[in-house]
Amino acid sequence: MPSTRNPHQALREAHQIANTHGCFVREKHSGRSTFYLLYRRTSPPTLIGQRSTPNGLRTLVCKACNIN
């Protein structure tokens, strides 16, 4: 079932949720596509995962931060 959430809104929510729960998001541009990388704030930062869409990133952030 496709999400009706605006991609820009999903990206903003993912950034806010990640920041609140000790994580951060980086964008990686590769050619014509963009990948969103989720890291845990540790020293050094730990990569949790990557997604290619803002809605996929929001889902990953919710799972990693244990948000329903």
Results as ranks from 00 to 15, higher is better:
A10T: 05
H8F: 05
S3A: 01
P2A: 09
V61M: 07
T4W: 12
R26S: 11
Q16T: 12
N55F: 01
R51T: 14
N66E: 08
L47M: 15
R40G: 03
Q9C: 05
T46N: 07
I17K: 08
M1K: 14
R40K: 15
L60F: 02
G31W: 00
N6D: 15
S52W: 12
G56H: 10
T4H: 09
S33K: 10
I17T: 13
L38R: 00
R41Y: 00
P54L: 08
N6H: 12
S33H: 05
Y36S: 00
C23G: 08
H21K: 12
L60H: 05
H29P: 01
G56S: 07
N55T: 06
L60K: 10
L47I: 10
G49N: 13
V25L: 01
N55G: 03
K28H: 09
T20G: 04
I17A: 04
L37T: 00
S33L: 07
R5Q: 09
T4K: 12
A64W: 03
H8Y: 06
P54H: 11
R32K: 04
C65V: 10
K28S: 01
L60W: 05
T59L: 04
P44T: 13
S43D: 13
S52F: 07
N68M: 09
T46A: 10
Y36V: 01
R12N: 07
R32C: 01
R58H: 11
N19S: 10
S52G: 10
N6K: 06
R40E: 14
L11R: 08
R5V: 05
